[in-house]
Nucleic acid binder design. Structure first.
Lengths: 205, 205
DNA sequence: TAGATTGTTAATCGATTAACAATC
DNA sequence: TAGATTGTTAATCGATTAACAATC
């Protein structure tokens, strides 16, 4: 359908490049090469050049890439040349950790609300936020036009909550619940399951 | 070198299959098919059959797979037919959430210790554990023969701590710090970075 | 037996790597 | 200019899918 469609696997590497570039910039470096960047992230120089060249010509022969210029462009490509509001659903320990998480700063995201269905949690403070009742979630998401959610509810509730998020207009879910979610094709899901990640490594032990 | 080497990408899917099978078992189901399992996890039936067949013949023509039998075999393949002790390094909010996390139960892991370098955190209780001083980490890891660690320290400290973990004999690191780690080839690393995962979705919005 | 579903082969599709002309 | 490094092409490598004989 779209001949210029970029493979998911390439898009998935861009945030890694961006993260490494940010660290180089923090150290005061001005330029880098596909070779050097590749060593930092553990990816071949050829692949990095190929990935980046899908989106334009951001380097210069002989000198490499301007770190700031490449960062600006990657941010624009990833649409994080803006701050996205994100909600957290599930006010357990993981939800609480995400509310307090410092790692969203300067990376395109900001937590704006946390919800739970447990009446004993609703109204309590977590960080600077008061836990909201999940019954008001649809309305709040719509009124604030929020597109991103992080889901930290128990596995048994996850699909049901995901359905509500989709109805409310959420377009991307970072799912911490240990289940695969069924969502419409136009809604993206990324999975974080510490047990799954550990199990991917024990095979090799 | 090893002609029977299984690609990482296949190993990476096994925990997803196992998780879905566990849920089926919890619902009282006894058998499933590659078709049905595929619908649950969003992977084609052909691929599931091919993946599973790399390790043996666990199904029966006409009837599919015994859920319990396949689970037992996947657990054995992934070496989680045992409980692995895991340490947490970094006693911030994320480390604390991992100590309290219920999702390791019955999935092959158990947190046994948490470390931090911050003297104001050392000695405090988190869950059932007392935060240990990182200066004693090498000795403790060795004496308990621990192979798995979850790393939740700040980005600037991550590589240094990872180096210590490697020296202590850790063979697999679940890294929550937003940096790529350099480790020897025989040490596995998996990355969890909420910002990176979110950035992989904003591209499509 | 008839129907269903596996395990496997061959074909297709997609991703990575190597190499180098272009050029800063 | 000489050296370095990009962007891109072609070759290689690897993963996915389709199809079906085997067989429960």
């Amino acid at each position: 359908m779209n001949p210029n469609k970029i493979p998911d696997i390439i898009v998935g590497r861009l945030p890694i490049y961006l993260r490494a570039l940010q660290r180089m910039a923090d150290r005061g470096l001005k330029t880098t090469s596909s070779q050097e960047l590749g060593e930092h992230v553990g990816i071949s120089a050829a692949q990095i050049r190929k990935d980046i060249s899908q989106f334009g010509e951001f380097g210069k022969q002989g000198t490499g890439y301007s770190i700031q210029f490449l960062m600006d462009n990657l941010r624009e490509i990833l649409k994080i040349d803006q701050i996205w509001d994100v909600i957290v659903v599930g006010a357990g320990d993981m939800g609480s950790a995400l509310v307090h998480y410092q790692g969203f700063q300067n990376r395109g995201f900001r937590v704006v609300m946390i919800f739970d269905s447990d009446k004993s949690k609703v109204g309590k403070k977590i960080g600077e936020f008061v836990v909201e009742d999940i019954v008001n979630m649809l309305e709040k998401i719509k009124s604030l036009n929020i597109k991103l959610a992080m889901l930290t509810v128990p596995a048994v509730a996850a699909q049901e909550v995901a359905d509500k998020l989709v109805v409310a207009g959420i377009k991307a879910i970072l799912n911490y619940a240990p289940v695969s979610l069924n969502v419409p094709m136009n809604v993206k899901v990324q999975y974080i399951d510490p047990s799954v990640h550990l199990q991917r490594m024990t095979y090799y032990l």
